[in-house]
Amino acid sequence: MMAYMNPGPHYSVNALALSGPSVDLMHQAVPYPSAPRKQRRERTTFTRSQLEELEALFAKTQYPDVYAREEVALKINLPESRVQVWFKNRRAKCRQQRQQQKQQQQPPGGQAKARPAKRKAGTSPRPSTDVCPDPLGISDSYSPPLPGPSGSPTTAVATVSIWSPASESPLPEAQRAGLVASGPSLTSAPYAMTYAPASAFCSSPSAYGSPSSYFSGLDPYLSPMVPQLGGPALSPLSGPSVGPSLAQSPTSLSGQSYGAYSPVDSLEFKDPTGTWKFTYNPMDPLDYKDQSAWKFQIL
């Protein structure tokens, strides 16, 4: 009977010793046993002879290597770790002494450095960015050149030099007046198309007034536009458009034309069986010896 009264063996659950049927240790109110408190290391007290050895090595170098620390530790009968900690504390003490010396050398008012006064946003004049500046400075420094007289040679050079070769001289006033084509001369031969040399188009003023001019072949195509416009036809070669000034309004060009419109200028042929003959000019830059190549039959 006494065997049943004795408590059973101890069981360990999660490293906790349980005594038989008792489960009081598993209750929430019972805390787990805490780790033992780490003991504080005792402070090391250095003797005068030990301090002399350490100070002598510190005077040589503030960062001794492990071999120098072990050698000193053997002399003063201390572990190497204590020597390492002593050098660490000695360097910190040396830095603190240097900072105190710097503070003593500075004057009393030198510690508080005078800061520059901050400028207020409204006091300083700042350039306004509302208006974009002129990058080319046209509004201040540029002045347009004065327009020359209508009959000045410089204007003629600016007008005619675009179309004339570089080897030719500017046309005088008398020749510029001949550039304007007359109405009857352009409409006299509506079906004849003559190819003149390129030099005649640039230099010869008579080429624009003769039936064999460069633009005589364009007349049949330009004249039928007159009834559609409801007024006189516009002429690209009329009046002052080739003269001194090219800047004319469309209203000033509306009254200039080749001449009176005639039914002869239409595109319809009077004789459907007729042929169109292209007159060959020996001055043509295209060297075609066979003139029969310039004739064709309209079917």
Results as ranks from 00 to 15, higher is better:
M2F: 11
A3H: 03
Y4A: 00
N6A: 11
G8N: 02
A15C: 12
L16C: 00
L18K: 00
L18M: 01
S19Q: 04
S19F: 15
D24R: 13
D24K: 14
L25A: 01
L25S: 01
M26K: 04
P31K: 04
P33D: 04
K38D: 15
Q39H: 06
R40V: 15
R41T: 13
T47N: 01
E53C: 06
L54W: 15
E55T: 07
E55D: 08
A56T: 06
A59K: 08
Q62C: 05
Q62H: 06
P64L: 12
A68C: 10
E71Y: 14
V72M: 09
L74W: 08
P79T: 08
E80Y: 06
Q84H: 09
W86E: 15
A92Q: 07
R98N: 05
Q99E: 03
Q100D: 07
Q103I: 05
P107N: 05
G110T: 03
R115E: 02
R115I: 01
R115Q: 02
P116M: 04
K118R: 02
A121K: 04
A121D: 04
T123I: 07
T123G: 10
D130L: 11
D130K: 11
C132G: 06
P133M: 06
D134Y: 07
D134A: 01
L136N: 03
L136I: 04
S141W: 01
S141A: 05
S141V: 02
Y142L: 09
P145F: 06
P145L: 03
P147D: 06
G148T: 01
P149C: 02
P149D: 04
S161E: 04
S161K: 11
W163T: 00
S164H: 04
E168L: 12
P170D: 04
L171C: 05
E173Y: 07
A174L: 10
L179E: 01
A181E: 09
L186D: 00
L186E: 01
L186S: 05
T187N: 02
A189L: 13
P190W: 14
Y195Q: 00
A196W: 13
A196G: 03
A200T: 04
S203H: 08
S204D: 04
P205D: 01
S206N: 00
G209D: 03
S210D: 02
P211N: 02
S212D: 01
S213W: 14
S216H: 07
G217D: 01
L218D: 00
D219S: 13
M225Q: 00
V226I: 11
L229E: 01
L229Q: 01
G231K: 10
G239Q: 06
S241T: 08
P244G: 05
S245N: 06
L246T: 02
A247G: 03
A247E: 05
P250R: 14
T251F: 13
L253P: 02
Q256R: 11
A260V: 09
Y261W: 11
S262R: 15
P263G: 09
D265M: 15
D265W: 15
E268V: 11
T275F: 03
W276Q: 00
T279Y: 11
T279S: 02
N281Y: 14
P282Q: 06
P285S: 07
D287P: 12
D287I: 14
Y288N: 09
K289C: 07
Q291K: 13
A293S: 09
W294G: 02
W294D: 00
Q297H: 04
